[in-house]
Design a protein around this nucleic acid. Structure first.
Ligand SMILES: [Zn+2]
Ligand SMILES: [Zn+2]
Ligand SMILES: [Zn+2]
Ligand SMILES: [Zn+2]
Lengths: 136, 136
DNA sequence: ATTAAAAGTGCGATTTTTTGCATGATTGAA
DNA sequence: TTCAATCATGCAAAAAATCGCACTTTTAAT
C-alpha cells in the first residue's frame, strides 16, 4: 500500500494520507480507531487534525484501501484492505486481532443467504474471546 | 418480556422503560436504534428524553433484556433478548432483519477459536445483502 | 394513606464524530 | 519553473451520543 495506490484511487498524495497509511502498515497485530491513529500522529510530532484523520479514513474506505470494522467496543476500527477476505478473532482484554478464513463457514453463509432469498453483498464474522497471552 | 422481567433485573417499573419494551416487542422484523425508538415515542406523544432512551437501552443491555448489535450502518441497534442465540441476515436497502442459526457454522467457530488458543466468550455473524422484497 | 430511601428522569453541559468553509498544497499543463 | 484548477486541510461550528445534577417517581415499610 503506497503512493501509487493513492494515485490510482484518485487521491492526491499528501502528508496526512501518507502518514496514516504508514501507521496502518505497521499495525499488523491490532486494528486501529481514528483516535488511536490521531494519538500516534501527535506522539510522533505530526500536527494533523482529528477531523482530517476521520475524513481520510472514510475516503480510504470508499477507495477500498482500508476496511472499516464495527467490533463490539462501539467505535470503528480500520485495517489495510489487502484484498484477501478474512474474518476476525478479537481479544476483548487487549484488543489483539487474529485473522482467519474457514472455507466451510464461508460456504454455509452463502447457502444461508440463498435459502432466505437474500442476494449477499458482504458479511462480517467476529469471534470475541480471551487470547492466549491474556489467559496467563 | 414484561414488568416482572424489569423487577427481576432490579429495575424500577417506569413509563419510559415499559414503553421502550413495548416498542421493541412490536418491532419483530427490524432492529431499532435509540433514535428510532425516540422518534416512535415522540410520535405517540410520549415526552421521553433522548438521553433516557440511550440510558434505558444500556441498562437493558446490562440486564440482558436486550442485545446490542453493531451492524454496518455504524450506530447500535437493539432487539429483545429472548435467550435463544441467533445470527443475522440484514437487508442493506430496507433494514429488514432475518434471524438464523446454522449449527455447522456454530461448531466451526468453536473449532476456529480453540485452534487459535482463544477462550471464546461471544461471536457475531452478520450477512448483508438485498432481501427478497427489495430485489423486485 | 403517609413517608423516607433509593433509583430514574429531564435538562443542559460535555464528549465524540462529522461537516462547512476559507486557506493552503498538489498536480499537470504551459 | 510557473501557474491555474482542483483538491485537502485546519479550524470552528454542528450533529450525535453520553454524562452530571437537581428534581420526581417508585417502592416498600409504617
Ligand atoms: Zn468470511
Ligand atoms: Zn488478549
Ligand atoms: Zn483483519
Ligand atoms: Zn430489503
Amino acid at each position: 500500500m503506497n503512493n501509487s495506490d493513492l494515485k490510482k484511487a484518485g487521491l492526491k498524495i499528501t502528508l496526512p494520507r501518507v502518514k496514516i497509511l504508514e501507521i496502518l502498515e505497521k499495525a499488523r497485530d491490532r486494528h486501529l480507531s481514528a483516535e488511536d491513529i490521531y494519538t500516534i500522529l501527535n506522539e510522533s510530532g505530526e500536527e494533523i487534525g482529528l477531523a482530517t484523520v476521520y475524513r481520510v479514513l472514510t475516503q480510504f474506505e470508499e477507495a477500498k484501501l482500508v476496511i472499516r470494522h464495527h467490533f463490539s467496543e462501539g467505535h470503528s476500527v480500520f485495517e489495510l484492505d489487502l484484498g484477501t477476505h478474512h474474518d476476525h478473532l478479537v481479544c476483548v482484554k487487549c484488543g489483539h486481532v487474529e485473522e482467519f478464513v474457514d472455507e466451510l463457514i464461508e460456504k454455509r453463509q452463502k447457502a444461508v443467504a440463498e435459502n432466505a432469498g437474500f442476494c449477499m453483498t458482504d458479511h462480517s464474522l467476529n469471534i470475541y474471546g480471551i487470547c492466549k497471552a491474556c489467559q496467563m
